[in-house]
Nucleic acid binder design. Structure first.
Lengths: 158, 158
DNA sequence: GTCGCTGCAAAGTCTTTGCAGAGAG
DNA sequence: CTCTCTGCAAAGACTTTGCAGCGAC
């Protein structure tokens, strides 16, 4: 289950495209395309981008009760998606991880400490600066992540 | 145990200073200064800055076996230290947290994915930029953290 | 048909909590 | 003395794993 052959970099990808990427990934690695896997991918795609395995599982149970999808399958599929670069996990101090679809690079987040909501942003200047810093320190960057904590607009108005 | 009154911002603080800060913090909150708490603070100070509760506990057991410090106390003290702003916890994807001494703000890290070592850095330009971004988005920043993953100089030369 | 996938429940991690006795102030 | 701390063990939260039957290919 390691060293999966992939190469995605999907920023704003359509679901059909995503699904087809996923399918060819599975085929390439002699894995099987199952209803559960499709449902997990689809739910992740259609939902608010940041979900915990737990909340993803609940969503799926509510929407597809006949499937009786187990939490273990959710975990297994999320690992698969992460390993293949289709999804990324985030872990910000809080317990557990959250998952989002997307490429593995250039992910920055604003996290509201009141309501827990996560807003994404990208800033070219910061990206450049990061590259420069790593070069100066002789470090070979492969990835990075940045989080800013604070209180979002909505919660400030409460 | 919440809303502790503190205000430290110790970047390169001497141990005596740190200890006295800690003591006055305890006094201010009617908490007690115990051998265990001192040993935990001291060990965190003297060690490589980034320790898991587990490894901190082991270090302490090795160095002060007569104390028979329990892991629960380590967790409790680390939470206390974090809550009071003396220590900060980091959680980078991997399981569990690591702790370091220091202020709550302006913490950026270079993490080697080969050897797991963590290098710290601060870049004023990025700090400014972050402030600007949050302002633009109507977000009230309280803290931030940034991690860059890659391969450090040492591991590249292997 | 084969071999990977799934749900379930059991087992693992890591962390927190309850409690009674120990100890700081 | 009082009231917080501590170690221990038990309980919790989150995640992984073993297994037997199911289902994709």
């Amino acid at each position: 289950m390691s060293n999966l052959t992939t190469n995605f970099n999907n920023k704003t990808i359509k679901y059909k495209q995503l699904l087809s990427n996923f399918k060819s990934l599975l085929k390439k690695n002699s894995l099987k395309f199952t209803v559960q896997r499709e449902v997990i991918l689809k739910t992740l795609y259609n939902s608010d981008i940041h979900l915990t395995p737990e909340s993803l599982h609940q969503l799926i149970q509510k929407k597809y009760p006949e499937l009786k999808t187990g939490i273990a399958t959710v975990y297994r599929t999320l690992s698969l998606l992460e390993e293949s670069g289709i999804a990324t996990s985030l872990s910000f101090g809080a317990q557990g991880k959250k998952y989002e679809l997307g490429a593995k690079k250039h992910h920055d987040h604003l996290i509201c400490t009141e309501c827990g909501s996560i807003t994404e942003f990208v800033d070219e200047e910061i990206e450049h600066r990061q590259q420069k810093i790593t070069e100066e320190l002789g470090f070979k960057m492969s990835d990075h992540s940045m989080q800013i904590y604070g209180i979002c607009k909505k919660c400030q108005n409460k």
